[in-house]
Amino acid sequence: MNALADQLLVLSLLVNFIVLGTSRLAFSVRAVALQGVVLGVLPALIHPFSWHLVAIIIGMLLAKGLVIPWMIMNAIRQAEIRREIEPFIGFIPSLVLGALFTALAFVFASKLPLAPEHEGLLFVPASMATIMCGFLILMARRKAISQVIGYLVMENGIFIFGLILADAMPLMVEAGALLDLLVGVFVMGIVMNHISREFSSLDTSRLTALRED
């Protein structure tokens, strides 16, 4: 069981690299949706059955697999952009940095002691690596859509960490956190729609009217 979980985590790490390495926005959105689905399935593998668990899984699958990707795709369609043209950090350097960050995450995770039931599992390093990659995307891309994608990747990383706490954490917090993130992204989506209407582009590098001269 745990071996399967590890393989799924590796899959989600791969998704990180896909997102880092591609310029096609629609492709990254789908990849992130896949990551969300993979992560949504994970709890079923490591935790015993409970209604609480079912609720989380369904919530995850719906939110990360369907609603959010659909919303972002919608935004892409409206703004009529397909590609991230001028990333702040190029795709090859992004991949290299992503690899570096992933390695760093493994080092960091190995420095900190884990509970015995999590030792030998990829949860903590994968979570760290995904968060760092999310950060990297946020820093490396200029377009608002890419940044939402980066934020989603980061969220996924945090979610992985949350998984190892899921059975111990009360439902209310979990659900609240999920709901909040969902609403957060949802509001971002609305704002993106407004941006595309106002600027006819989702390039956040154009959003630099507010600055100090």
Binding site: Y151, I158, G184, I195, L207, L210
Partner: peptide
């Protein structure tokens, strides 16, 4: 335009922070 830019940045940075 200015207020939307401000809102976007606010959302992005605060969301990252809160994450």
């Amino acid at each position: 335009a200015r207020s939307i830019e401000a809102t976007w940045k606010y959302l992005l940075i605060c969301s990252v922070g809160i994450a």
